[in-house]
Computed example of a mutant assay.
Amino acid sequence: MRSTRASIGKAAKTFLFGLLLSGFALVGGASAQTRDVVVFAAASLKNALDDAGAAWMRETGKRVTVSYAASNALAKQIEAGAPADLFFSADLDWMDSLASKGLIRPESRVSLLGNALVLVAAKGSTMQVALQPGIDLAAILGNDRLAMGHVDAVPAGKYGKAALEHLGAWAGVKDKVAQADNVRAALLLVSRGEAPLGIVYRTDAVSDPNVSIIATFPNESHPPIVYPVALTKDSSNPDAVAFLAFLRSDKSRPFFDKQGFTFVGKATSGS
């Protein structure tokens, strides 16, 4: 009898343990299916991408979590194993860097957006600058600083340096540059009055009411500004595929148009 009771008790415990494991599996599965889509995106995308993510959530009930920083910093985080589903870069170089290491899904990659490079000053500034070859930007700055992203890593800083070299102004201003961690940080230096001039994207200037665009760099003065986006190799979130499709669709276009981006990739009609 004791043996029979012990066997029944053992069987009951085994059954209960199995139920607990099944419960954990169900909970874990639900979490995996409903977890946020994690996007690593260039800082200059913030306003437009926040709006696009909110629209997608209203449509699908799914959430997007975005980490904004300079593209170089985000690429290095992904390389170090950070769990991102999508990488949305402000230039081709950092996407190429991840691609060369096999860290994105090449079939998902698309060059989606374009931008323009501008010179900004604080709102109400009377400074006038003609961005043409031979410009003496150093004389215009005097003892002040020029705000830019880091010129050797941050895409906006790299574009800015290339443009100044093209115009023959880099040698004169290179020791006057206040280098920031990302383009939004450079914008903030001008917005707060800590630098009289800054080089940012047109879309950044549009986002800040405390700055004005005083000149636009000629397109031929720097490499084309292209924003590629791709799924990361390790992403297993099916919602990330759906959100990428949404970003490529005409449903997301108004949010990027509003901020001054141009579409270089063909929008699709689906979501």
Rank of each mutant, 00 (worst) to 15 (best):
A195C: 14
D234I: 10
D96R: 01
L92V: 14
A90R: 07
L20S: 12
G142R: 04
V177M: 03
L86D: 08
D136Q: 09
V118L: 10
V151S: 11
Q77F: 03
L119C: 00
F243M: 13
I78P: 04
K266Q: 08
R63Q: 13
P224I: 02
I140M: 07
H150C: 01
M95D: 11
G18V: 02
L92I: 14
A242L: 10
T203N: 14
G61R: 00
V118Y: 07
K46V: 03
V120W: 00
A245D: 14
A121Q: 11
D91V: 04
A147K: 01
I78C: 03
L164I: 05
D250S: 15
D85Q: 09
F256D: 07
V190S: 05
A99R: 13
P209D: 10
L86W: 05
N47Q: 13
K158L: 06
L21W: 03
A48F: 01
L26A: 12
P133I: 09
F24S: 06
R105W: 03
D96Q: 06
E59S: 15
G149D: 05
S269F: 11
F246Y: 15
P228E: 09
S100L: 06
A122N: 13
S221Y: 00
A11N: 07
A122Q: 15
A240G: 05
A230G: 06
A162P: 08
K62L: 00
P209H: 07
S252I: 10
N47P: 09
V173C: 12
A6N: 09
L86Y: 04
G114M: 01
A156G: 01
K13M: 15
A82N: 01
R2V: 14
A162S: 15
